[in-house]
Nucleic acid binder design. Sequence first.
RNA 1: GCCCGGGUGGCGGAACGGUAGACGCGGCUGACUUAAAAUCGGCUGUCCCGACGGGCAUGUGGGUUCGAAUCCCACCCCGGGCACCA
Length: 822
Amino acid sequence: MAEHRDDYRYDPQEIEPRWQAVWAEEKTWEVTNDPAAGKSSYILVMLPYPSGEPHIGHLKVYTVGDAIAHFHRRRGERVLNPMGYDAFGLPAENHAIATGVHPRESTAESIAAFQRQFRRWGVSIDWSRELATNDPAYYRWTQWIFLELLRAGLAYKKKAAVNWCPVDATVLANEQVIDGRCERCGAEVETRQLEQWLFRTTEYAQRLLDDLETIDWPEHVKTMQRNWIGRSEGALVTFRSEDGDTEYPVFTTRPDTLFGATFFVMAPEHPDVLRLAAGGPHEDEVRAYVAHAHAAPNSERSAAERPKTGVPLGRNVINPVNREPIPIWVADYVLIEYGTGAIMAVPGHDERDHAFATVYGLPIRRVIDGPGELPYAGDGPLVNSHADFDGLHNRDALKEIVAWLAQDGRGELSVNYRLRDWLVSRQRYWGCPIPVVYCEGCGLQPVPADQLPVVLPDIEDYAPHGRSPLAAAEDWVASTCPKCGGPARRETDTMDTFVDSSWYFLRYCDPHNDQAAWDPQAVRRLMPVDQYIGGIEHAILHLMYARFFTKALADLGHLDFQEPFAALFTQGMITRDGAKMSKSKGNVVSPGPLVDRYGVDTARAYILFIGPPDQDADWSDEGLEGVHRFLGRLWRLSAETANAALPDGGSGNGAVAAPEGADLELVRKAHWAIDKVTRDMDGRFAFNTAIAAVMELINDCSRLRGSVASPAMSFALATAASLIFPFAPHTGADAYHLLTGRRVWEEPWPEADPRMLESDTFELVCQVMGKLRDRVPAPSSAGRDELEALALAAPNVRAHIAGREVVKVVVVPGKLVNIVVR
RNA sequence: GCCCGGGUGGCGGAACGGUAGACGCGGCUGACUUAAAAUCGGCUGUCCCGACGGGCAUGUGGGUUCGAAUCCCACCCCGGGCACCA
């Protein structure tokens, strides 16, 4: 036999392209929008950013998605599993600046590379729905959504802080700021105020928070979103200027400490700072402080350990609880973006205020009793406050003080969020143009929907020179006002690429529609996405923005659901030698050579076998070899068995009538594997243990090869091929076809026969004092008394209870007996 | 500092409160071979023992339980997120 085994050589390089050709030819994975086609589910993997060649992380995420998609298909669902490219963005533009190659060309090249790989990987994609976000046929509708948000007041323009490189004279994206410096020239980045487009995400803060309860996402992702939204409950308390003319509300979570407020602090950006300081003793100093704060690098502001700095304005405000005048300071530890941009400072009970008061010698007052030195941030009874509140526990006093202030409008309960509006303007070329024009007479005008898309023009120079590169395309910028027909200039900022990817999942439902962004019927049938799969790095931004878009579009009547992704799975990274793969570390594993050498099925199955898919996993070449051996064994056994069984070949997957002995053992193992793989797949994503179960089945096939009749062997192997198909589709399909002559993807997912999962006897575990002492065979039907008797009779149990008194016997039917002795 | 994860053999990892270490890698060893590769088989947590068997073992220390990797309390270490958010 041994010398013939080479005839059954597992040759993935022959097998894989052969089945890929069938799937491409027959468009196997395409789904129609015909409602008669049956129950659908939408399995979506986050679309890739096409840059260079796909890496091993792509192989992992699309393998995970593919396994889930195949499993659902085999369970009778029509599965939408589309593919697209997040094709606008900075790397392509930086590449263009460096090489002069148009981003469109480098992007198209990269997309072609991704397409080749995805086909080579055998991923079951519906290619008829492919899209790229830089395609005018796509971004036409990105622009349409922008205009819808504008119409609804959810898109607006205002002066906002941007990262500004003084040397390159350009705005930088956050990603281009490394440690507070420009990534290109190394200059310290400044903050500048420019007119920017924003989306009103803050308006959805509460709903974005609340609706997390309604979706099946990993708890840690929800937690990250909750932290990002940062809801905090407190009170808005109004302080007044001494002349009583101006109100200065502050947000505080600790209105119980109002009697301990000994000064008041405004952010440098607060609009009243310079006016209040005018004519005072510190006017010049304040002016200099504010100017420095405006221009200072962001990193300086955000360093919490930095010593506190500030300047008094020379004016007071009145504390509403006790009429006490307290001095106003300007200090950059107060942020303009949060709350009202001004705070009451309670140095006795807030660490930051305490640090500031210590630097400038400001009074520190204890108003809550508690252990230790000030500052004390804990709970306790009020002291030094007011006869009505002293002695009350601070949590109770908090409510009473706010209620008391509310009586005459000095304060009210309030909620604040950390979430900011989404700044979408980018002074960059390679992005979706913002579809508005500026007319001298009529002002800002949206481009009418029937004139979309506003097509991104070709330009010569991509480098920004203090304005968006688009501003240089004079012919393009010069436009006409849709209202008065007079001359108008186009908006030259482009949109953040996260805008493009905030709605692509909707476009897949109806990707070729040139009358609308989507047909509501098509979206209604497919959305929300049943299972979304992607990297944890998108836990906050992309997932928050997509949720915001969905809610906003629902409010505008374009969608009738609130959440885009009903379930989310985040896969872990593949590392090498315990570190993230990177060219500089030289530890990159490239899918290309890997697939050439072992075939993609080995790579796919190994990536899933390596460990739980949501965890990071370290790559091992030896581990890969092991999985390759396993697939080879599965295939070779199938080929041999199919060949031996040729006379009645085709009986493979049929039930084996009344098996006995080794046949029964193997058939049982096959049913056990069906049950195990099914439970591991069904909502659990335990691909590693599922593959291990198929390995066990193959090990048994191998072991029992000489003693099992052909039908039982065929059944076991066809079952293994069928179960491995979602992970190693080519090998599974080929082995299954060899054994049965049928196409495994057209077969329903196998079902375990419950009778085959039980057996007449089991191994009874016998414990004494919780320690394993013996194992004896027992009938599955045995009752508690019988099991107890069997255990007490077990030789090694008798040895351990000899001379002792049995005080208790715990019986777990079908499992074990534990004997407690004294 | 706050909020999440996670600590199990030489390694990746398995284990509804019920036989700890499935499966794979690595190692040792055997078969086939002139030889190697490939393939197939056996052994492999650790210590004591000739064997039967026994002791010790899931980061550390306690607790609950007939029984704990799993539940509870305290602590240590690693990874991630947020961080002057009033």
